[in-house]
């Protein structure tokens, strides 16, 4: 599970507590879904169990917010291993967009209003991402945003292609 690896990557830069980890994770991956606190602590617990992180210090009272974690030697090994290994491409789950469009067409309903509305929404999101990217301070952030933008662009192109095919089909039938 790669959230764990990203957190290990953050800890490789120096010990941190859970709150810092979440903030750094989100800053490093702008445009992606933000990490929930619960997930941070669950992941840390698992990493500690597997010996990949250690508790470096406990500040003040008890509770997870006060615990400072550090990466262990095992953790570093796991991290380097992950960094060096390529990922499997796909398979992608059918997205809601595709499900909705295909279902509508199977029912002989005009999917174009949906496709157009969806395109507007997607472009709205694209605009926000591009604006965020233009304001991004460093190249890492821009690269992370590129990924989201390119995926969104793939969806947009799919929407355009679908609309064009539906229009073609309509013209052919007339």
């Amino acid at each position: 599970m790669s959230t764990a690896h990203v957190l290990l990557g953050v800890l490789a830069g120096g010990p941190a507590h859970g709150y810092d980890l979440k903030r750094e994770h989100d800053a490093r991956l702008p445009g992606a879904k933000p990490l929930a606190y619960g997930q941070v602590y669950a992941t840390l617990a698992r990493l500690e169990r597997d010996g990949q992180v250690e508790v470096a210090a406990t500040e003040g009272g008890s509770g997870p917010e006060r615990t400072v974690y550090a990466i262990s030697e095992v953790g570093e090994e796991v991290l380097l291993d992950w960094l060096a290994t390529p990922e499997q491409p796909g398979p992608y789950a059918a997205e809601e967009l595709v499900r909705k469009t295909v279902t509508a067409l199977r029912l002989h309903r005009d999917a174009r209003p949906f496709l157009a509305a969806q395109r507007a929404l997607h472009l709205e999101r694209m605009r926000a991402l591009v604006a965020e990217q233009r304001a991004a301070p460093d190249v890492e952030a821009r690269i992370a945003l590129d990924h989201t933008i390119v995926h969104l662009d793939a969806d947009l192109r799919w929407l355009d292609d679908a609309a064009a095919r539906v229009a073609d089909e309509g013209n052919a039938l007339r």
Partner: peptide, 20 residues
Amino acid sequence: DNRVAAYADREVVLRDGAVD
């Protein structure tokens, strides 16, 4: 290019010579 279009404040889509 959708990314280029995203630099705009607003999009106008044309189809067959008229605004879609």
